[in-house]
């Protein structure tokens, strides 16, 4: 685990529009504070709702992709202001502790290796060519308005993920599979077999989207068999198909795309992702 540099966090305070002065002076003290501080604050303040590993308890998981995708500034704002759906404000913790908690949260998310704005060390143009070409990422994932629809939009992904985290996500996908991304196979009473991704489900109905984009509106009572696999549609073999250099190029393309595309304004406490 590498320590985050004060300068980056100072910028975040400014971009989050919070505590302009306090943020600056705080950074001085911030140097040298270790993870222990954040871990302790997390255990006292967050674990009872989000679980001690952040994987969710009464409150949602903080390691879900859509939370990972939030920028540091957004996380700081969430913790400081709270969210209307039951997430309290922790303004009283003080700026330094909020930063420590968010920093610790990043390690729980497996993002602890992220230092400063993620560095793009690869060949961005080659990464783009792979994304839209040989690697066929674009057949499933949209980025900057181009590409498929069955998997999540990756435009913002590189904003909150370091190159090695991205490479890891590509070569070891579904680790574990996000519940709403798993491939589901169903068989209807009329003998129809469908394989796709569930977009909505309750005890009565299921909306299954197949890879051709079509939504299948199914009644649970018409389903003879529902098989929920433990994998998503993301190919499992990129580790063999792509060299480390190619992976780094793709990661660099995602990082640069994330950092150069203006973010859509999100309602407080909500976010995009997962094709939802």
């Amino acid at each position: 685990m590498t320590h985050l540099k004060g300068g980056r966090w100072a910028n975040l305070w400014v971009s989050a529009g919070l505590f302009l002065l306090a943020g600056m002076s705080m950074m001085a003290q911030e140097q040298g504070r270790g993870d222990a501080q954040g871990a302790g604050e997390f255990a006292i303040n967050c674990a009872n709702c989000h679980g001690s590993d952040g994987q969710g308890a009464k409150a949602p998981s903080l390691t879900a992709p859509n939370i990972v995708a939030l920028s540091n500034a957004e996380l700081i704002r969430v913790v400081h202001d709270g969210v209307s759906g039951g997430m309290p404000s922790f303004a009283q913790l003080g700026d330094a502790n909020i930063v420590s908690v968010v920093r610790y949260l990043r390690t729980l998310q497996g993002q602890g290796d992220m230092v400063g704005p993620a560095a793009a060390t690869g060949d961005v143009a080659a990464g783009r060519a792979l994304y839209f070409g040989k690697a066929q990422c674009s057949s499933c994932h949209m980025i900057q308005g181009k590409g498929g629809f069955i998997a999540s939009d990756l435009t913002a992904y590189g904003r909150s993920h370091a190159a090695n985290a991205i490479a890891k996500a590509i070569v070891t996908p579904d680790n574990p599979v996000a519940p709403d991304a798993r491939v589901v196979e169903v068989r209807t009473k009329t003998g129809k077999k469908l394989t796709g991704v569930v977009r909505n489900e309750d005890n009565f109905d299921m909306v299954l989207q197949t890879e051709d984009g079509r939504f299948h509106f199914l009644a649970q009572s018409d389903l003879i068999d529902v098989h929920r696999t433990d994998h998503s549609l993301m190919p499992q073999d990129y580790g063999r198909r792509l060299t480390p250099a190619e992976l780094n190029n793709i990661a660099s393309f995602l990082i640069v795309a994330g950092q150069t595309t203006p973010a859509e304004p999100l309602p407080p406490g909500r976010r995009h992702g997962g094709g939802r």
Binding site: N203, S221, D222
Partner: peptide, 27 residues
């Protein structure tokens, strides 16, 4: 849970195709 429910509902359902026709029964 959902699978279990689907099975229970199947028992209560007469053969039919699609939601359009079994609306009401599937609940």
């Amino acid at each position: 849970i959902v699978l279990g429910t689907a099975v229970c509902l199947l028992l209560a359902t007469t053969p039919g195709d699609g939601r359009g026709q079994t609306a009401g029964i599937k609940t």
